[in-house]
Amino acid sequence: MKTVFIRPERCIGCKHCEIACAIEHSKSKELFTAILEEPTPAPRIHVLPTIGIMTFPDKCRHCNPAPCMQVCPTGAITRNKEIDTVLINGNRCIACGMCGIVCPFDAISYKRSWEISIEREVALKCDNCVDRLMKGFEPACVEACKTNALSWGEIEEVMREERKKIAEKIAIATTSAEELLEKPVPENIKLWRDLGLVIKKLGEKG
């Protein structure tokens, strides 16, 4: 399975990914017409200012198990297993905000979208550019990133194994996740995983 990799140390904060994302999720999918659209197309990736001059491109991690999907009271959030992507069906969304407050990455925003038939805000987040993937293209943010801070590739086998092990044994992982891991992982990944695994449910099929 392929996924977007983020290498934060390479991000220079140019925000090309944000623009590409907004255009890809606009009605016209063209820069010059997109900026005139109502509602204004919104990016689903956000380049965050961090410590010092560093920036960090933050987006949905398509967690598995996914807290947002677990909690949605209307069943608007589902996983497309084929491309391992968590998707929100805006036409089922009531903008209750529950998914937003469980996402450890703050990856969901609430805005109007041309795709929704009723005029109201709905939950929006990265969809891995499903439309592009289906046509054999990479996600728009990856294509736009000139420094390779965002790339598209196979998930390392090791990572997968590690993840499966965790998913098998725990429900809410946060602290106990570490104990279950046999070998120590680098602090940064541990941190990431700790946060990502404030998880409410068992994961992938065993």
Partner: peptide
């Protein structure tokens, strides 16, 4: 934001 935590971690290990 979340990025603050990550960049903090990066300074420890790439």
């Amino acid at each position: 934001n979340y990025g603050k935590l990550v960049t903090k971690a990066i300074t420890l290990e790439k």
